[in-house]
Structure formats: structure tokens, C-alpha cells
Amino acid sequence: MTTTVVAGNPKPGSRTLDAATRLAEALTGSAPDHVVDVIELGAGLLGWGDEKVTAAVDTVASSDLVVFASPTFKATYTGVLKLFLDQFATGEGLEGVTAVPLMLGAGPAHAMAPDLLLKPVLVELGATCPLPGLYLIDSTYTEDTRITDYVERWMPVLG
């Protein structure tokens, strides 16, 4: 099984990337095969045909399991993640990919954002999202048991 983490944070090497990597490891028992820190794709995200962006899209599209992660910005996922997701064809760009939406925020006010905002976009692009999205508090996710609890509860669905 090929596992990829996609982190859509405007800051490279972010807590979002760390949390997504932790979740992917907890779900699979090993480090992800690929990591796409979207901000590192730079200005190539603003158009079509950039080699680095195309390679990242191909990597994600050929993965079996992808954790898509974003911090909560203005009550939704980031624009940089949206720019990356816009590179995938509607209905088929993520066909065959099992996607897990993950978002981080400062407090519980946006706890439904992964399911209400990120998951529908992933499904529109053809991904299968059998699990509910996971929302983590960005200041406590390394200390609390939310990732472990989530994996224990939902791992049977992934098989």
C-alpha cells in the first residue's frame, strides 16, 4: 500500500505536516511513502503544466491512502491547498485513492470543517473518504490521544 501525506500549510515543515505524518504512521504502522509539502511547489501552483506540480499530482493520484491536511484559515482549508487540489481532474483525478481529511485549529469552533469543507472537495475529485475527517487542536495534538483514539475507532473501516 502506497501512503502519501499532503500538507497545505503556507509554512514549510509545519505542525500540519507533522500531524498528518503522525496520522499516516498511526493508520499504517510505518512512515508515509511520500510527503507533499504543498508550499514547496511554489509559483508552479498558479498555472498548469509545472513539472514539480505534475510530479506531485501523479504521486498523489497513484497512492492508495492519502492524508490531506490543512490548518483552519478563515473557517476553511487554505488557499494553497485549494491551488493544489485544482490540479486534479474533477471526478477522476483521485479515483482509486482513499483519502483522509485532517485539519488543525486553535480551538474547537471549527471541529466540523474537515467533514463539511475538505471532504466534499476530495469526493468531487474522485477520492473515496470512508472515514470521518479528523480535527486536531494545534497546540495539543502531540500530547493528547486524539490521533490514537481516531485510529482505534476507525481502523476497522480501512481494513
Results as ranks from 00 to 15, higher is better:
Leu83Val: 06
Leu118Pro: 04
Ala89Met: 09
Leu83Trp: 01
Phe68Lys: 08
Ser30Trp: 02
Ala111Trp: 02
Leu27Met: 07
Ser63His: 11
Leu23Lys: 07
Phe88His: 10
Val5His: 05
Lys11Thr: 11
Glu152Met: 12
Leu17Thr: 08
Lys74Glu: 10
Ala113Thr: 13
Thr4Trp: 08
Ile147Asp: 09
Phe84Trp: 04
Thr145Val: 10
Leu125Val: 07
Thr59Ala: 13
Gly133Asp: 10
Leu131Cys: 10
Pro120Ala: 06
Val100Met: 07
Asp33Asn: 14
His34Trp: 00
Leu102Met: 12
Asp144His: 06
Gly107Leu: 10
Thr142Gln: 14
Thr3Ser: 15
Gly8Asn: 12
Pro32Glu: 01
Ala75Glu: 00
Thr16Val: 14
Leu122His: 04
Val60Met: 10
Thr148Trp: 00
Ala20Glu: 08
Val123Glu: 14
Glu25Tyr: 00
Gly133Tyr: 04
Val57Ala: 07
Lys11Cys: 00
Glu40Ser: 15
Leu117Lys: 09
Ala109Cys: 01
Ala127His: 06
Asp18Val: 15
Gly13Ile: 11
Thr59His: 09
Asp144Met: 12
Pro120Trp: 04
Thr128Asn: 08
Val151Gln: 12
Gly79Met: 02
Val57Lys: 07
Ala19Cys: 11
Thr142Gly: 11
Val67Arg: 07
Val60Gln: 03
Ala24Met: 11
Gly13Leu: 05
Thr59Ser: 13
Asp86Leu: 11
Gly159Met: 08
Thr76Tyr: 09
Glu51Met: 05
Phe84Pro: 07
Phe84Gly: 10
Phe68Leu: 06
Thr54Leu: 06
Ala106Phe: 10
Val53Asp: 11
Ala7Asn: 01
Asp86Tyr: 13
Ser62Met: 01
